[in-house]
Simulated scan of single mutants.
Amino acid sequence: MKMMFNAAVKDIEISGIRKFFNKIQHIDGMISLTIGQPDFPTPTHIKAAAKKAIDQNHTNYTHNAGIPDLRIAISQYMEQKYNLYYQADSEIIVTSGASQAIDTALRTVLSIGQEVILPAPVYPGYTPVIKQCGAIPVFVDTTENEFKLTAEMIEPHITDQTVCLILPYPSNPTGVSLTEAELKDIAELSEKYNLIIIADEIYSELTYDEKHTSMGTLARERTITINGLSKSHSMTGWRIGVLMAPSHIAEQCLKVHQYTVSCASSISQYAALAAYTAGINDAEPMKKEYRRRRAFTEKKLLELGFDVVKPDGAFYFFAGIPSGAASSEQFAIELAEQAKVGVVPGTAFGPEGEGYIRVSYACSEQQLTEAFKRMEQYLT
């Protein structure tokens, strides 16, 4: 029987990160520097709140946008942390992870044939959704500007079909962020061309040198802010994300969200309530450790001849492989097979990533030390 599929789905490829992982997962004794999640446990008080919610039978559907107390807590948290205010009852939607928030935002704003501008290299989770909407991703190569996307770089790519700009910062895979001045320029550009901005700020709590500036404070009426607890509170598996936008945008996003998941997990929402209240500073000890690992990783990469742009946040280096090395994928395969160290080839984040690998320092110092020891032996 001939199967009929949506053409947009048939054209989607499995994530390059996952495809590469499948190639090397059979290797025993490998140290993985590929991981995109914190290696810390979820804080104890958050887990206790979830257990309490189960015991109190909070196991029913919640409001589509999330339990009211949680949305109030999120509103207060964002205002305290970033001077960013959204109304709890009409401008905040609790989602099943930041990925679902991104999906909801894109499906809300895009129509067939419209264009979306985004930096490259970039996290591979945006493009498939854009294409499923019948829209067109337009990539701006940032490799010549230390992975910074600027207004000056964006403007030549704007056409009559451009409706949206995606700003992921700090970035996955580069860890590079944007300053307030750079964001102001982009805000002015978006006003000039009437663009919607989707600001993916999931790593906002993991910035090391300068305080994170949220685009919603600069272009509130045209910004959809994406955030969540996966990185800040080590809650990747709890699947709690947040979509925040002016009420006229959030109202439309809620329709898409409602018919996609109804609501986020009730138990996870009660855990999130603890995270956004009692756990408002839970990220601080993690950030302190990441800052130390960042320094260690940078030192080792430079010693081994990698080209390094120091990341502002997240927990990744997007490092240029030493001259004379093979392609990114071949380098990563040989490193896995011969040194038993796993990294992600840069091409998993688009063709602009050729010549680079992504190295995660979201693992213990002991693992990092042994991994770089093995890399040194392989390279020499």
Rank of each mutant, 00 (worst) to 15 (best):
A219T: 07
A48P: 04
Y203S: 14
I31S: 02
C253Y: 06
R71Q: 01
L273A: 08
Y259T: 15
E365D: 15
P285V: 00
G175W: 06
E146W: 02
I186L: 11
T108F: 04
G279S: 01
R291C: 07
I117S: 10
G29V: 03
R222Q: 15
Y361E: 09
A250C: 15
P121S: 08
P156V: 08
Y290G: 05
A101E: 06
N172V: 10
P285N: 00
P121V: 07
M375Y: 05
I46W: 02
G313L: 04
S262C: 10
K19P: 04
A187G: 13
A283R: 11
V163E: 14
V116F: 06
I31Q: 02
A339V: 02
D307M: 08
P43F: 02
N145D: 04
L178Y: 03
K231Q: 13
S177V: 03
H58K: 15
L335K: 03
F139A: 14
K51L: 15
K299V: 00
P173T: 12
V343S: 00
K340V: 02
Y356W: 10
I54C: 07
N194H: 11
K310H: 09
R292I: 11
L379G: 05
E334Y: 04
Q87C: 08
H45Q: 10
H212A: 15
A135I: 10
H257W: 13
S323K: 14
I280A: 14
K288I: 10
E91I: 11
K300R: 15
D307Q: 14
T59K: 09
Q258C: 14
T207A: 10
G313K: 03
I46N: 02
F5N: 00
T213D: 06
I72E: 12
P173G: 08
K211A: 14
A8K: 10
L368P: 12
K184G: 11
S177H: 11
Y208G: 07
L183C: 08
E298F: 01
L167C: 12
P285W: 00
N172E: 12
A181K: 12
S364C: 08
A332R: 05
Q56F: 05
Y356G: 03
S204H: 12
Q367L: 14
G324E: 00
V94W: 04
S111A: 13
I14M: 13
A275E: 02
T62R: 01
F315K: 00
H26C: 09
I202N: 06
Q80V: 05
P43M: 07
T142F: 05
